[in-house]
Design a protein around this nucleic acid. Sequence first.
RNA 1: GUGGGAGUAGCUCAGCUGGUAGAGCGUCGGUCUGUGGCACCGAAUGUCGCGGGUUCAAUCCCCGUCUCCCACCCCA
Length: 562
Amino acid sequence: MSEQDQEKAAKRAQWEEINRAKALARQKQAEATDQGQATAVLPKKQFQVVRGTRDLTPSDTHLWNHVETVAREVFGTFGFGEIRSPILERFELFARSIGSETDIVSKEMYTFDLLASREVMHLQGQLYGSLRNPGRFTGNLFELLKCLKDAWDSQQIEQTESNDRAIKKLEQIYKELYSSIETDEAFLQAANDPQIRKMVLEASDVSRQIVVWPQFVVLRPEATASVCRSYIEHSMFQLPQPVKLYYMGPMFRRERPQKGRYRQFYQIGAEVLGGNDAPAIDAEVIEMVMTFLDRLELPGLQLDINSIGHNAPDCRPKYVELLREELRKVKDQLGTDSRRRIETNPLRVLDSKLESEQAIIAKLPHIADHLCDACATHYADVKSQLQLRGVIYRENWRLVRGLDYYMRTTFEITAQGLGSQNAVCGGGRYDGLVELLGGPPTKGIGFAIGEDRLILSLQDAGKVPARQGRDVYIAWMGEHAYPAAVRIAKLLRNEGFSVELPPTEQKFGKALERASKLDSRYALILGDNEVSEGSYTLKTLADGTQEKYAEPDLLEFLKGQQ
RNA sequence: GUGGGAGUAGCUCAGCUGGUAGAGCGUCGGUCUGUGGCACCGAAUGUCGCGGGUUCAAUCCCCGUCUCCCACCCCA
C-alpha cells in the first residue's frame, strides 16, 4: 500500500515537472509563431446530415434500384402507370384527408408559411406609416390591394361578406385617390385636403380590419392524398375507369428517428381510383403487392386483413359505440393510453401492444360480426377472391388503420428483422376520399410500402443481389498501347459493357490486382506485344485462363458471354 | 414529445474506477518492370462527437448539447 502511494507521489512530481516544461515549450512556440506565419486556421466544422435523414451511397443504392426496378416491372404487369406528384402540397390537403386530429397532421408535418400573410401585415403597417403622404399612400394602397386580392383568391382571407365589402371599399378609395391626385398640383394640395385626409384615414382603418390567414405548404407525409388531388385536378375520372397508379419517392414526418423510421423516408405505393368497388379489385391490389414482395424473396411475410365497415349508422359507428360501452366496463384494468382512447378513438385500443391488456382485449366484440349487410358481403367476397388467387392471409379483427379515410378492407403486411416497426406495408379502401377532397364520388383502394423497412428486412435476410463489378478492366502498358486502349474502351462501352480504363500507366501486377479488386470479369491485356500484332489478350480472372483475339473476334466473344 | 443505452482511425471494436491512444479489416506504397487473389514489410488517417467544469493532468469523473441505437407514442 505505502509503496504504491510512494510510486504515485513520485509519478505525480514527475508529471508536474513535465507539465511545466511543456508549458514553457508552448510559450516559446507561441512566441516563435508570432514572428513567423500566424496561421489562421478556420474552425473545421464538419457538416452532417440533418436528423432523421441519411445518404444512400452506391453500396445502398444498388439494392434500392433493384427493389424499385422489380416494383416497376410487377406493377406494370398489373396495368399500373407511374405518377410523380410534387413533394410540396397544401397543408389542408392532408388535414382533410388524413384527419386533423391525427399525430401526422397535428405535429409531424414540416410546414412552410407562404409568406403572403406576413407580406400583407407588412403592407398594412406601411400604409399606416404613410398617412401623411398621399402620393406614397396611394402607391402602398395599390400594392396592398394586389396582395389582398391574391389572398382572397387563395382563400387566405375568410370568405365573409364583410371582408368582401372591405376590399371593395379599399378599391373604391384607391380609384378616387388615384383620380383626384392625378396632377402634380393636386398632389401637393392633397395632404391638406380634408376630403382626401378623410379617405386616407378610412382606407387605413378598413385595411386593418382584414385578417389574412397564413397559408401553409408542407412536405408530404404520404402520397395517397396527393394522388387523389391529381386525379381530380387532371379530371382523370374522364379516363377509362378505374385508373391504376403507382408512385415511389420520399415522404417526410417529423418524428423521433428509430430503426426503420426516418424523417425523410421512402414509400412505394399504388392506388386504384374510380370504377366500382368490386371485391376483385381489393384482392388484385393485395395480390399485386404480395407478388412484388415474393419476387424480392422478402422473408417472414405475413398478410393480415380485416374490414372496418363504413361510416353509416348501421355499420362502424354502431360497433364503435358498442366497443366503447364494453371498454367502459373494463376501464379500470386498462392503461392510461387506452383509457383516453375509449372516448377519443376506441378502435385504436385494439392496437394496444401492452401485455397487461391483451387478455381483456381478446374478449371484446369483433367488428366483423357487426358490419352492415353490404360490408359483410363485401368482406366475404374479398376473402374468396384472395383464395381464388392463392393469396394466403390471416384475418386479424384487431387490425384498424390510423388514418381517417380508410373503410371496409384494410390490410397490413409484416416482415422479419424490423424490431418493433415491423409493418412493411399498409393499405385499405377509401371510397369517400376523392369526394372529400372536392372530386366526384369515387371508389378508391391502395397501399403504401415502407421502402426503408423493406430494404432493412432484405438486408437482414441477406437477400441482397450481388453487386456487379466491371466487365472489363483494361490493363494497358506502354505509350503505344494507350491509344488502342482508349479506342477499345469506347467500342466496348458502346456495346454496353462496364469498362475500367486506368488513367495512368500501371505496373502489370498492379493492374491485375486492381482488376480483381474491382470484381472485374475480364482483364484485357494490351501491351507492346499485342499492339505490334494488332491483337488483344483477354484474361478470365475467375480461372486465370487467357486467350488472344483479333478485334472483331474479341467483340463477338464478349457479346456471346453477355 | 417521454424514458433507457451508446458515441475512440474509412469500418468493427479494445483501452485496468485519471498519466497524453491501440488491434483487426480496409486504403495506399514496396518486395513484384508481362500475370491478380496469398504472404511479408512499410505508410497515412484521430482536436477519443461537440462545449463547459473538476484536476498538475480527462478518452476515463461531473454538467450541458448534438447524433445514433432501443423502447413508448404513432405509423409505412
